[in-house]
């Protein structure tokens, strides 16, 4: 019994050391350059965020938000709470909205924008504006 224990001790020491020697250089590998895909994803997310912030700062959009009873600051916070993928998806949806130069289409755009933002945040469970969006039970974070 004692020999087994002594053996186990030395074996476990050997295994620990060899595992460490495997792990340590790998970790310094991880600290190296940022991969192309990661860098691109992050940049695309930041771009989308800036774009949405710009749209949210527009006067007509802020008016449309207020008309819906939403504080523009609150809308900003909601966009901030979205993940990278979600923000990119939202920006894409907004870019697809018809946006003409004249006053009427600006109003239509503002209205649609508010609708899209609320719809997306609704689907993700941040808001609860539309009853037709099915929500999964989510823990409050």
């Amino acid at each position: 019994m004692r020999t087994i224990r002594r053996l186990a001790k030395s074996v476990s020491l050997f295994v620990t050391v060899s595992m460490l020697s495997l792990v340590v250089p790998y970790q310094s590998c991880l600290a190296a350059v940022i991969g192309t895909e990661t860098a691109l994803d992050v940049a695309r997310g930041q771009e989308a965020r800036q774009y949405l912030e710009g749209v949210l700062a527009r006067e007509d959009v802020q008016k449309a938000l207020t008309a819906q009873g939403i504080d523009p600051k609150e809308a900003e916070r909601r966009v901030e709470g979205l993940s990278n993928t979600e923000v990119v998806r939202l920006a894409k949806k907004v870019e697809e909205l018809p946006a003409g130069g004249d006053a009427l289409s600006a109003i239509i755009f503002a209205g649609l924008f508010v609708f899209v933002v609320l719809l997306v945040t609704d689907i993700l469970g941040y808001t609860d504006v539309f009853p037709f969006v099915k929500k999964h039970a989510r823990k409050k974070s």
Binding site: S28, L30, A31, A32, I34, T38, A39, V42, G45, Q46, N84
Partner: peptide, 14 residues
């Protein structure tokens, strides 16, 4: 900074 700031910190520390 940005979302990858922790990775940048690792590089700096190294």
């Amino acid at each position: 900074g940005g979302p990858l700031v922790n990775r940048y910190r690792e590089t700096l520390q190294q």
